[in-house]
């Protein structure tokens, strides 16, 4: 029984303390996440939301404490920077993202992912010629294409219109229903099932 309980736990953060420029961002932060649940990180600008997400993603290592993932690879991370090459088309960008995951995807699968973020017709447009929101959508199309049980999304709704926010929320709920885990930072109130909130105070 106990083993099962432990097995359902995907993430455990134990007493994370992080300082930047001699300023304590958060101290002795502990939390855990089960499969199928989400965590929204809130807090004012500069409270350390992005830093926390980068710590959880395995990018930022200057902290004390422990982060334990029940994962073989890194989580899927979407950061401030869209992770999209301006000189490549939307299709090429997603093909490269799939390559990095070692996934063999067909052109149809890529186009399907792009149409999920309302970018049909933009498959062969260079991302540099797109609007900011569209570029971010190309980055978010990875959520429809790549297999990863854990998503870490830093402000996924920035520059996305209302309809887009609804679609992404829906996608997050689907992911949670499939026993995935989502950690995201956002100032928006979104309806996501099974969600905890973590308020970072300064």
């Amino acid at each position: 029984m106990v083993i099962q309980l432990l097995g359902s736990c995907m993430l455990q953060a134990k007493k994370i303390t992080c300082k930047r420029d001699h300023r304590v961002l958060f101290e002795e932060l502990s939390f855990s996440l089960d499969r199928g649940s989400a965590l929204q990180v809130c807090g004012i600008n500069g409270a350390g939301k992005s830093t926390l997400l980068r710590i959880l993603a395995g990018l930022y290592e200057e902290f004390d404490g422990e982060v334990e993932w029940d994962l073989e690879d890194y989580p899927l991370f979407s950061g401030h920077r869209a992770g999209v090459k301006d000189l490549m088309t939307a299709r090429e960008n997603l093909l490269w993202a799939a390559n990095l995951y070692g996934q063999n995807v067909s052109r149809d699968e890529i186009d399907e992912a792009l149409s999920q973020v309302s970018l049909n017709g933009f498959e062969t447009v260079a991302c540099g010629a797109m609007s900011e929101g569209q570029r971010r959508r190309v980055g978010l199309a990875r959520l429809y294409l790549l297999d990863n049980p854990v998503w870490i999304l830093d402000e996924p709704f920035t520059a996305i219109d209302t309809d887009g926010v609804l679609r992404i929320t829906q996608r997050i709920n689907e992911h949670l229903a499939g026993d995935g885990v989502v950690v995201f930072a956002s100032h928006l109130e979104v309806s996501i099932e099974n969600m905890q909130k973590l308020e970072l105070a300064r």
């Binding site: 395995g58 690879d73 890194y74 899927l76 992770g83 995951y101 070692g102």
Partner: peptide
Amino acid sequence: EQIALGKQ
């Protein structure tokens, strides 16, 4: 950072 976090 996407490359660094990829499975490859």
